[in-house]
């Protein structure tokens, strides 16, 4: 992406985010989402983020790689277990990267 496109992206994503932040505080209580929609949206974080995380781990060079040769699968699964048990942001990142580097070093 070119630098001007990146700047356009910053402006647009910032506007959207700020719009959500000011939505009710500035335009107090003039509209509301239907409760069903609100309920469905509570699942937005796990759904959206896993739709980003999974391909970043599994898709290598344009196609799905589920073989043992894809070190990211093992590193990613270990990171998920660490995140789940420790809830520690840095341990998750550091151990996840270390496992990836270790497996690469061992020739996976």
């Amino acid at each position: 992406m070119s630098q001007s496109n990146l700047i356009l992206m910053i402006v647009l994503t910032a506007a959207v985010t700020y719009g959500l932040r000011i939505s009710f505080i500035v335009a107090a209580g003039r509209y509301d989402l239907p409760p069903v929609v609100q309920k469905i949206l509570t699942y937005a974080p796990p759904a959206v983020l896993f739709a980003l995380i999974t391909p970043a781990i599994i898709i290598r060079n344009g196609s799905a790689d589920l073989s043992l040769g894809n070190a990211r699968i093992i590193a990613g699964l270990i990171a998920i277990v660490i995140a789940w048990t420790t809830r520690n942001l840095f341990l998750t990142i550091i151990l996840g990267m270390s496992v990836l580097w270790g497996l690469n070093y061992l020739g996976f």
Binding site: P45, P46, L49, F50, L52, I53, A56, I57, R72, A75, G76, A79, I80, A83, W84, R87, N88, L89, F90, T92, I93, G96, M97, L100, W101, N104
Partner: peptide, 21 residues
């Protein structure tokens, strides 16, 4: 590039979302 730093992005996302599941 051999450090595969781009892998830090999904790892950070995992660290943010998994504890809340």
């Amino acid at each position: 590039a051999s450090w595969e730093l781009d892998f830090a992005v999904p790892l950070m996302l995992i660290a943010m979302v998994v504890p809340n599941i």
